[in-house]
Design a protein around this nucleic acid. Structure first.
Lengths: 152, 152
DNA sequence: ATCATTGCAAAGTTTTTGCACCTGC
DNA sequence: GCAGGTGCAAAAACTTTGCAATGAT
């Protein structure tokens, strides 16, 4: 077992007392390499199959859930019935983005040319909500929904 | 067929060329009366059964989808595999709120004591995104995720 | 009268569970 | 070596579809 891309996340997993198995490394590596996409479990499964032909879809689901629970991944839904996952990018990271989704065709557009106040405000809100509701906030899902140019 | 609570939405539906059937009225009425909850299709089904014993779950799904497509409802997911629906409250309405959800137990907390800049900024972003991506934005899903006091 | 809408049953998808085997530490 | 992790098959859960019957305009 040698260290690979995504080692930061791999270490984080170890710190949580989880074993760093090959499937887990594979999933972390893959999602780390593609930080701006939003994969379904199925898409990750078919991708991982290439490197780990024996991997099972069950493992994908279990690993994704584990990573979500430990704050490494963000899980969300755009209305098509499939959960989507992406690496939790820090709000200061260039990979951090929000989503604009079409309620007709399901198209997802990322945007990260934030209005300058946007990130500041989110941090402020997170601090405020944490205190008020005694939550440890790990993530946020900001999603604007509407009808895209093609569907109108 | 007589007018009932939620007539504003009922009229909106008619304007979209949809027939105003009893099940549709029932669903609109129910969701209008409970503007701050987030119901699953199943929960709405069992509620509507009381008034319309013959109603089918299929109708619930079809009606909800219709209402979402026409912008009357907001649909979102908190990570438990069930879609949730609520009446689209205008951002200026007292019913308008955002969500704080626990990734462990699925608890949903509404908050609407917005930091004063929050609503202004959202409007600004919506205008900006609409132009940039030629979207007609109908709704937004703002969701902070974390671990609640009880789960920590 | 007409055509959209409904309810039921069946099918389709996505996700979870049980269990014997395997693997990282 | 052992607890935790994996893969397969089966099951569960949620949602959609086909179709004949019904209902709103």
């Amino acid at each position: 077992m040698k260290e690979i891309k995504g080692f930061k996340w791999c270490n984080k997993l170890k710190q949580c007392g989880c074993k760093l198995t090959l499937p887990r490394q594979g999933i972390i590596t893959f999602l780390t390499k593609n930080p701006v996409k939003h994969f379904t479990a199925d898409e990750i499964y078919f991708e991982l199959k290439k490197k780990f032909p024996n991997i099972g879809l069950t493992t994908i689901y279990r690993t994704l859930e584990l990573l979500v629970q430990n704050g490494l991944l963000s899980k969300f839904e755009i209305g098509d019935g499939k959960s989507r996952y992406e690496i939790s990018a820090d709000t200061t990271s260039a990979d951090h983005h929000h989503h604009l989704t079409c309620i007709k065709c399901g198209k997802i557009i990322n945007y990260n040319n934030f209005i300058e106040e946007e990130i500041d405000l989110l941090k402020k809100i997170e601090v405020s909500l944490s205190k008020q509701h005694k939550f440890k906030i790990t993530n946020h899902v900001i999603q604007f929904q509407g009808i895209c140019h093609d569907c109108k």
